[in-house]
Amino acid sequence: MSTTNPSSEAPLEGGRRRLSLRRRPDAGSPASAARARRRSKQRRRIANVAGLMAALVLTGVGYSALAPGASAADDPTGNPSSAVEAGREIYTRSCITCHGSNLQGVQDRGPSLIGVGEASVYFQVHTGRMPLVRQEAQAAERPTLFSDEEIDQLMAYVQENGGGPTLPSGDLRDGDLAEGGELFRLNCAQCHNFTGMGGALSSGKRAPTLLDANDMTLYTAMLSGPENMPVFGDNQLTPDEKRAIINYVQTIKTTADPGGAGIGRVGPVAEGLVIWVVGMGALLFGIFWMGTKA
């Protein structure tokens, strides 16, 4: 499960509304600024940062005004501005080289972070993919460099200045297991394998194994579509469906194998290896022994 969760109902709802607000005007707007960014992590347009900010503030303010009970939970760090401020420091220290001073991204180094939201920040930083060590086919997964508190601050900073999808709250496994399985096989298994063991993609890229992923990582990955992974927005896979998928993935990977050793759960390749090395090997040894004299 997630370590800390700065956002609660309010930002989530705000985020979703913002998404639907933003989507229409996006269609067909120019995108020349981002064209050359090979490794862009930008998921959506930067059509109107100001409008976006306004929408953020408006929906946030509006929601908290309408739902006074949520205001306490709104803000677990106590002081949003100090969290944002701390986040800015971390950003300046670790991220600014590639993502620019205003989250706008740097040509050939890093994509714009405007609109990626805290979901993306959570995924990238929590799994240690960011900060990037070097430019390669795909960011490698590493132990995270930051404490949970620092990640929270960084998320607050990016969310404050860039906007985008926010972290979900509640039980992320609150979904139907079998439905999650069907959705997983339809949407995820083609890259991540039946059992989430991961798989190869073109030219050295790969879909990572889901074995180490926690619920929040899975959720934010679907929401933000990191690197080559397609985005699964909330209107494509509803939050309930995402939770069902997470429930399935996390259940499958912790269940025992009823039929003995799972041999990596990668299917016939491992089975072929076992029959040749263990099966044939043991039998060759056996007949060799039988053929010798006492």
Binding site: R185, A189, A207, I252, G260, A261, E271
Partner: peptide
């Protein structure tokens, strides 16, 4: 081998559906 090493765990693969596939 039949008892100790799991082979062809079809419950993990799921039923056939022409629209679905797994890597590997």
């Amino acid at each position: 081998l039949g008892g100790l090493v799991q082979i062809n765990p079809i419950w993990l693969f799921g039923p056939y559906n022409p629209a679905q596939v797994s890597s590997g």
